[in-house]
Design a protein around this nucleic acid. Structure first.
Lengths: 194, 194
DNA sequence: GTCTATACGCAGATAGAC
DNA sequence: GTCTATCTGCGTATAGAC
């Protein structure tokens, strides 16, 4: 990995662990094993580096989610696969955490990837739910956008509860809880097939 | 309000808006209209002030939640009242946001009120759900701790989605979504009564 | 491309006068 | 109780040599 790559990856890791406010140029350089001059040669400064890092993290998250949601299977199976995928639960969501960074939210460029990623996730889940309804796997009365928002919120909130407790337990419980509620919305026939 | 009170309230506001890392002694003093010496006379420093502020915020949040959850009514009504209470949605949860502050999570004293408050909330909601089950208002198959975790997660995650989008919309959708899922777990007889 | 030198202001606190 | 110095180090760069 060249210096530029190492700088980007270090920034991604630090933004995840400490946020934008908590990440200093010096810390980035040390973690990347790069000097001061090196960093300012490749990037305009902390802001430019963070922009590159955040965009990459956002793209990666969408790609990983899409991989689980686009496999064959029922809507419920795909959503379950997405929710139960391996995660670094105690580190939290690398995109969602930026939402708490006032300097990120105040800067339109830094904020855009965060806004876009979470909006995309809700839309994509609503699509999957809608497909499930169309296929008769889910109750027609279920509201896809609202349910999708609830599911994404359970994830983001699950991270918060896990970090507060210091264990992954509340995250797993929240996911199980919402999946159980959702499963009850499969009509009898679909539930028996499952 | 005396100087000490103003310092505490300023700290509470700043912790909410900018987190612990993003809050400097100078900013606290300016907002409180107090001088440097004044702050260090009343408190040992940023840490001590934050400790007082966080404890107060945590207590207040529990009191407000308990007020909604302890009124007469069915479990579903009380949980709905709690979820739909007025909130500063775009500011986020003043307790949950501290979960993203590495310096708070690394300090046992600062962290304890955060951990305790969110743990208490889950337990309290599980109790209410259990009462609902016992009263025949909710499906016996519903798992109170998991469902409670999901509900608290929807709140915490709803804040995240709202902040990302810049509108309260996803928060309201997530709340509606989870309440709709939950309502379907009321047995027919209870649903008809409602 | 990378290094070292230099700069200015803020973070976070201590000391002692009033 | 509050004020004004004073202090050390870090955050965030810029400049220019190699």
């Amino acid at each position: 990995m060249n210096t530029e790559e190492r700088l980007i990856e270090s920034t991604r890791a630090l933004l995840w662990e400490r946020g934008y406010l908590g990440t200093s140029p010096k810390a980035i350089q040390q973690r990347a094993g790069a000097g001061q001059g090196s960093m300012y040669h490749h990037f305009a400064g902390k802001h430019g580096l963070a922009l590159t890092a955040i965009r990459r993290t956002a793209e990666e998250l969408q790609a990983v989610a899409e991989a689980r949601l686009s496999v064959p299977g029922t809507a419920l199976e795909r959503i379950t696969a997405y929710l139960r995928r391996e995660r670094d639960v105690l580190k939290g969501c690398p995109v969602g955490r930026l939402t708490q960074d006032p300097d990120v939210m105040a800067d339109p460029a830094l904020r855009a990837p965060v806004e876009d990623t979470l909006a995309w996730l809700r839309t994509r889940l609503a699509q999957v739910l809608d497909e499930g309804r169309a296929a008769g796997e889910l109750d027609r009365r279920l509201d896809p956008p609202a349910t999708a928002a609830a599911i994404v919120a359970v994830l983001q909130g699950g991270y918060v509860l896990a970090r507060a407790s210091g264990t992954t337990d509340p995250f797993d419980q929240a996911v199980s809880g919402v999946l159980a509620l959702l499963a009850a919305h499969a009509p009898e026939t679909a539930r028996q097939r499952a």
